[in-house]
């Protein structure tokens, strides 16, 4: 009896839903870069068949900001980073360009990070690599892990990889880190006892209060949020989501968040690199 009644109400609910799941829109940036925003889930994912970019869950107004670079406020960060790319800093008097050439020569990197680094004996993020260059090769001070300078630089490295499919490696030496990330993804934390999976695997497409839940993919990072009017890094977003479970968060750049980033990135393998993207 109870079951029947609940079923009846949930059917009524389904009928009254304005929007469920991702929309049908297609993302082509500048009428030029055709983004894969929907693709079969990678083999390691059991509970989900199809993966979607977060762009597909945003309103038409928010989506429009990302369809043309002139309208994309995240491009300001890319331009800032283009200046930094050419500017010498630190005791060695070198810029990124002195060692790496044009920023465009870095195309493809965004798609494979986080990645195992043999010399360091651990999985690193682009932020780790940027700071490693600054400290050991430029003799410059490390940037704050989730600060504006580094997030702009990650936006530039994403920009030059736009449209390429995410393809982080999860086997070999990276595997234990990936396993840790997976464990964190499914851990229910805080006084609300919610895991990433509760919201982004079990409930994507549903509204939680005023928010339309996406799959929590990171192929679009860094993300310019209209809400805080700046580019946001992956770890800043993780911190916000963990905090919202009324939990003690991990720190941006911590081994836990690096592991979580590798795992979440691997859930998006096959989606296009989209950064800098725009969200509400």
């Amino acid at each position: 009896m109870k079951k029947l009644a609940t079923l009846a109400t949930s059917c009524a609910l389904v009928a009254s839903m304005v929007q469920a799941g991702p929309d049908e829109d297609q993302l082509i940036v500048n009428d030029e870069i055709s983004m894969v925003t929907e693709v079969a889930a990678p083999a390691h994912m059991d509970a989900v068949d199809t993966i979607y970019s977060g762009w597909r869950f945003r309103s038409d107004e928010t989506q429009a900001f990302q369809m043309d670079d002139f309208d994309n406020p995240g491009m300001i960060g890319v331009e800032n980073a283009m200046v930094d790319w050419e500017t010498a800093d630190g005791s060695e008097g070198k810029s990124c360009a002195d060692c790496h050439g044009a920023a465009e020569d870095m195309a493809g990197l965004r798609a494979v990070y986080p990645k195992w680094n043999d010399a360091m004996g651990k999985v690193t993020t682009l932020e780790n690599e940027i700071n490693n260059c600054r400290e050991t090769r430029m003799g410059a001070k490390a940037w704050k892990y989730d600060g504006g300078d580094i997030t702009d630089m990650v936006a530039l490295l994403s920009y030059v990889s736009r449209g390429m499919p995410m393809s982080v490696a999860i086997d070999g030496p990276a595997q234990p880190t990936w396993e840790l990330g997976k464990e964190l993804y499914y851990s229910r934390t805080g006084q609300l006892e919610l895991s990433c999976a509760n919201c982004h695997e079990d409930n994507y497409g549903n509204m939680i209060r005023a928010d339309h839940l996406s799959q929590g993919q990171i192929n679009g990072f860094p993300v310019y949020r209209l809400k805080n009017t700046k580019l946001n890094s992956v770890h800043a977003r993780f911190k916000g989501c963990v905090r919202d479970t009324r939990a003690e968060t991990y720190k941006p750049g911590s081994p836990e968040f690096v592991a979580l980033e590798l795992y979440v990135a691997s859930r998006g393998n096959g989606l296009s690199v989209e950064g800098p993207s725009v969200r509400n």
Binding site: G190, Q191, R243, A247, E248
Partner: peptide, 24 residues
């Protein structure tokens, strides 16, 4: 269930101080 437990005081993982992100 995903529904939070509203009258519960122990057994939490990484319990925070409300929505500050700091430890409780």
């Amino acid at each position: 269930s995903m529904m939070p437990s509203f009258y519960k005081v122990e057994g939490f993982v990484r319990l925070g101080n409300a929505f500050t992100g700091k430890a409780h």
